[in-house]
């Protein structure tokens, strides 16, 4: 398991470093505080970092419930394992739901962008980046198209991470079912919960770095 996680770490590392290289190579990059300032049901309130912090805490908390599940597994306490596995799965699903909302909000966004002298309304996609430098146009401060790489990197890396979360949830569901069917009691140890746990913590670990690279700096 550890060697798989190491190879996965290199994959994510390569993605993030490539993102960093491109970001360093352009004069203007999207300002995260401007891009990620929305919160569900908060309308157009300017709340930078708030939603993504919530997502971070959800993932940290689901990591804790996972450790507790592993801990109960050591004590051969099947009920305890079940309880904490369910909490972990709920955490994973909550995170995925948050990410789905965030993506939808970005893709369906509606920002004024000055393109070839005309004002257009753009969302953030892999081909459109409305977060370029600001210019004055008819007495109003409007954005211009930013580096096209932003959407690709953002959706690519958070998507790859989200897919890891998704597979982690599936693995945890399988583990929960196997626990319920008393497979681990018959086997005499809860080793598989531990391996699923390693994968789940790795997903949390990757998010810590995605959080740093895309949202904080």
């Amino acid at each position: 398991m550890w060697y798989f996680l190491m190879s996965d770490a290199f994959t994510f590392g390569a993605f993030l470093i490539s993102y960093g290289t491109i970001r360093f190579s352009v004069n203007h990059w999207a300002d995260p505080n401007e891009v990620f300032n929305a919160f569900p049901f908060a309308g157009h309130a300017n709340l930078p970092l708030a939603f993504v912090s919530l997502m971070t805490f959800i993932l940290i908390f689901s990591s804790v419930t996972m450790v507790l599940a592993v801990h109960e597994g050591h004590k051969m306490n099947r009920k305890g394992v079940e309880k904490y596995m369910i909490l972990t799965i709920i955490g994973g699903i909550a995170f995925l739901a948050c990410q789905a909302w965030e993506w939808t909000h970005m893709i369906t966004g509606d920002h004024k962008v000055l393109v070839n002298g005309e004002i257009e309304r753009w969302g953030t996609t892999v081909t459109r980046n409305p977060w370029g430098p600001h210019v004055m146009h008819n007495g109003e401060l409007v954005s211009t198209p930013g580096p096209i790489a932003f959407g690709g990197y953002f959706f690519g890396i958070t998507g790859f991470h989200g897919f890891h979360v998704f597979s982690g949830v599936i693995i945890n569901v399988v583990m929960l079912i196997k626990t319920r069917l008393k497979h681990f009691d018959q086997r005499g140890h809860y080793e598989m919960i531990e391996k699923a746990g390693l994968y789940w913590h790795f997903v949390d670990l990757v998010w810590v770095f995605v959080f740093l690279c895309f949202y904080l700096v």
Binding site: I17, S18, G20, T21, I22, R23, F24, S25
Partner: peptide
């Protein structure tokens, strides 16, 4: 790589 990006 960051050095490289800056160089570009």
């Amino acid at each position: 790589f960051l050095w490289d990006g800056n160089s570009w």
